[in-house]
Design a protein around this nucleic acid. Structure first.
Length: 592
RNA sequence: GGACCUGUGGUGCAGCUUGGAGUGCACGCCGGCCUGUCAAGCCGGAGGUCGCGGGUUCAAAUCCCGUCAGGUCCGCCA
């Protein structure tokens, strides 16, 4: 018996049913002499002369070899039932690379339960099929060990998370998928109403407001493994629909939530990786930006940003004369080719930088030499100061960016750091980090209104509350992100639980009383009936599992993902609706 | 909305720079041989709209333009 994936009651290891006595991959010497009946797919067939053939039978647990007569007509991916005797393989024919390699099934009677066409991609292939083909035949792709492993590991993570969060007294509550439009932030998927032509539900970008209402309702601690939907262009780490592990608690501080989330995430890591990661460190948003050029720092490698301001004060080099100038050092990058450097300059421009200065550091007779078209515009003192500030050694590459704005200069270098970093060999253990003290607002829009960095229900830092109207950009939010290896796993915040504070935040955002009522009236009403102080968090399950699986794309941990253009290559979605179906929804047929 | 990469028998690739007969490799498939293989082996065979459309040229998988699909990224993702 083994522990069930749910960590609860043990389940039978054999999964015996009326059709089979057990699983292929579990057979061993202990079973020798048993008469077994097995079901599965034909993984491979090897023929040897007039009568002998071997058929490898596969189910999810593994493969076992069956000895059959050549006349048996089964081929790859047929579904068969095999009845026979488990026997030890003849001397010298055991296969140590196979878990069941000591035994084989003899005296086989094979029944074909379903014939298979030759598949366009096979789990037995040794090459990685084209992505489009994989998605079109996803049910075949899912037969492959990689995706079997990923999805089963995902189930283990979910299960471990549920167990851990329930130990903290959290109660699972489901919230609606058909929600009301609350325009703000991510674009929403709309669902037309059949009974109310011209009106729409939207699919929730997150259960944010619903879970706050559950706090008002007195549930105290809520969680949900919630599907979220955002109509924004997919990426390697984003799909239209994705899964959040979502939680909210009453009468808690930011630190309480961080402790709980840290505990459940570590429990999940323990469950699938065998050992919990080290303690999760904490860093402020300002520190993350200035050291790593991002609010989601990858701490698995160095290459931190350094400030070149003092080193180059009053420089005559125009490319680095702007108020903000920072640099990273790429260890061993001194041999980077000119074309590769041109590519980095293009990348910096694409990221919004006016340019990128590079310096290949070479060993000279009297010390390191900076090799760069720009080096001649620096004085001896400036060259020495640049080397001292970056700590660059001969053989390294220094990349520097200058600009008006601290944040954008850092962001460009942060992206280059990730592009170039972490290529040193050797193991790189995962590094969780909390990023705290986010600014309440990202900046100002064209009309001078502050742009919220989080959703508008985030509680400002109490010390900064009185600057909301006068100096909004200096206001910190009680918001916190959890970051793993450079991926933003999730974010959370202390919520506003008082209507007067909520009104002043809306006012700072330039949202009028009437507009706020129109969009969030139900929330304002609820806050008026006694809302407990509450705070919460949500993190992307797809991303967490992808990292645990060593995958770089969340499609690899989603059973039926969509392409970057939002298509489902298997079902053909999205598809047109008939004119009749459109009419029933009160929608006009598209112009043809 | 934009940038870049990819598209060649069922599958994965090479061929494209420098135009010259659908040429090649591996897997799979079909047939034959083979009684201990396990990525079986050996022999033979079938299988092609070089994504699609247009252009240049005596001649296009190859060069040019457009377009479609997949991917990576920018914008976007409160």
């Amino acid at each position: 018996m083994v522990e069930g994936a749910a960590g609860g009651e043990p389940v039978s290891e054999e999964l015996a049913t009326s059709m089979r006595t057990g699983l292929c991959g579990r057979l061993g010497l202990d079973d020798v002499g048993r008469r077994v009946r097995l079901c599965g797919w034909v993984a491979r067939r090897r023929e040897h002369g007039e009568h002998l053939a071997f058929v490898d039978l596969r189910d999810y647990s593994g493969v076992v070899q069956c000895v059959v007569d050549r006349a048996v007509e089964v081929r790859g991916e047929d579904v068969v039932a095999v009845e026979g005797i488990v026997r030890r393989r003849p001397e010298g024919t055991a296969n140590p690379r196979l878990a069941t390699g000591e035994v084989e099934i003899a005296e086989c009677r094979i029944e074909r339960l379903a014939a298979a066409q030759t598949p366009p991609l096979s789990p037995e292939d040794r090459v990685e099929p084209d992505e489009a083909l994989r998605m079109r035949y996803r049910y075949l792709d899912l037969r492959r060990p990689r995706l079997q492993r990923n999805l089963r590991l995902r189930a283990q993570v979910s299960s471990a998370l549920r167990s851990a969060i329930e130990r903290h007294g959290f109660c699972e509550v489901e919230t609606p998928l058909l929600w009301a439009p609350t325009p703000e932030g991510a674009r929403e998927f709309a669902v037309p109403s059949r009974l109310h032509h011209g009106s729409f539900y939207v699919l929730p970008q997150s259960p944010q407001l619903a879970k706050q209402l559950l706090m008002v309702a007195g549930f105290d601690r809520y969680y949900q493994i919630a599907r979220c939907l955002r109509d924004e262009d997919p990426r390697a780490d984003r799909q239209y629909e994705f899964t959040q592990f979502d939680l909210e608690a009453s009468f808690v501080s930011q630190e309480d939530v961080m402790a709980i989330v840290g505990d459940v995430v570590r429990a999940a890591a323990q469950a699938v990786l065998g050992e919990p990661p080290g303690p999760i460190e904490t860093m402020t948003y300002d520190e993350a930006m200035s050291r790593f050029g991002t609010d989601k720092p990858d701490l698995r490698f160095g290459m931190e940003l350094v400030d070149l301001g003092p080193a180059l004060t009053g420089t005559g080099l125009r490319a680095l004369a702007a108020p903000q100038r920072r640099a990273i050092t790429v260890p061993g990058g001194g041999q980077t080719s000119r074309s590769r450097l041109d590519g980095l300059v293009d990348r910096a421009r694409q990221l919004g930088a006016p340019g990128l200065a590079w310096f290949r550091v070479q060993a000279g007779e009297t010390g390191p030499i900076l090799e760069s078209p720009l080096a001649g515009h620096l004085s001896d003192q400036e060259r020495a100061a640049l080397l001292a500030a970056t700590g660059a050694e001969p053989g390294d590459l220094v990349l520097a960016v200058a600009g008006e704005e601290w944040r954008s200069v850092c962001t460009v270098l942060g992206a280059l750091r990730v592009d170039l970093g972490g290529q040193e060999p050797g193991p790189r253990p995962s590094r969780f980090v909390w990023v705290v003290d986010f600014p309440m607002f990202k900046g100002l829009d064209e009309t001078g209104r502050p742009v919220p960095a989080h959703h508008p229900f985030t509680m400002p830092h109490p010390e900064d509350l009185d600057r909301l109207a006068t100096d909004p950009l200096s206001v910190r939010a009680q918001a916190y992100d959890l970051v793993l290896n450079g991926w933003e796993l999730g974010s959370g915040s202390v919520r506003i639980h008082r209507p007067d504070v909520q009104r002043s935040v809306f006012a700072a955002l330039g949202i009028s009383e009437a507009e706020a009522r129109g969009r969030f009236g139900f929330l304002l009403d609820a806050l008026a009936y006694g809302a407990p102080p509450h705070a919460g968090f949500a993190f992307g399950l797809d991303r967490l599992v992808a990292i645990f699986c060593g995958e770089e794309n969340i499609r690899e941990v989603i059973a039926f993902p969509k392409t970057q253009s939002g298509a489902d290559l298997m079902t053909g979605a999205p598809k047109p609706l008939s004119d009749a179906a459109l009419a029933e929804l009160g929608l006009a047929p598209p112009a043809r």
